[in-house]
Amino acid sequence: MEAFFTSTVVVALAEIGDKTMLLAMLLAARFRQPVPIAFGILFATLANHFLAALVGAQAAAWFDSEIFRYLVAAGFVAMGLWTLIPDKFEEDDQPASRGGAFLTTLIAFFLVEIGDKTQIATIALGARYGDALLVTAGTTIGMMLANAPVLWLGDKLADRLPLGKIRLAAAILFVVLGLWLAAETAGLFG
């Protein structure tokens, strides 16, 4: 359950203010259909994050060594530092709306998530816990916890959330996970 819980919290915090959250706000404003947009986010995240968690879990199985665990720990610390940099949604990142709310969201979220902080975090979590299913379930719940409210309350939430403080909390969590894994690998807890 640690893999599920940690994955949920890490992605929920990291997602707040992220490019995909801004995309959710844009899609909600454009389509005004929160249910199909939510399902598009759900299915895109399940597909994207399962592949990412699987890559992480397989890499951990193939390269199971102290060096690899230190690299994963360093990856968490790097993710923490990266989280401190706010995302911007560029005008040319706007999805075309030819396929309706669900299809547009599904495709846009899957593509925008490629190489995004939360996808890379999912790879690291998959490597850390070696359980693609629990990590995918956790990161998907985290993604939905962060994005679903903006579909119904977008404008109201955007003005009230302390994005800087939330980003800092996510960064601290990533760094703590990285330091914890490094200390665990060094045998400081055993």
Rank of each mutant, 00 (worst) to 15 (best):
L111Y: 03
K19M: 03
T20Q: 15
A74C: 09
D116I: 06
G56V: 02
A74N: 00
L26F: 15
G178K: 08
Q119E: 11
G187Y: 02
A108S: 15
L13K: 13
A52V: 03
Q33M: 10
A29K: 14
G164E: 10
A124T: 03
L161K: 11
A137W: 01
A182L: 04
T140S: 08
L54M: 12
V150M: 10
D155G: 14
L161H: 08
V135K: 06
L54T: 09
L145A: 11
G115H: 07
L71D: 01
L106H: 06
L13T: 04
D93R: 11
A28P: 13
A186I: 03
I85C: 08
T140M: 08
T104Y: 01
T136P: 14
I67F: 01
G100K: 12
R167M: 04
D18A: 15
V11H: 05
G190W: 02
Y129G: 05
L157N: 11
A57M: 07
P149I: 03
R32F: 01
T83S: 13
Q58F: 01
R98G: 03
E66L: 02
L23I: 06
A127M: 04
G80I: 00
L125I: 05
G154D: 07
W180D: 09
L13Y: 04
D87W: 12
L179F: 09
D155F: 04
V175D: 05
F50D: 05
L46R: 09
A60R: 14
D93M: 14
W152F: 15
W82E: 05
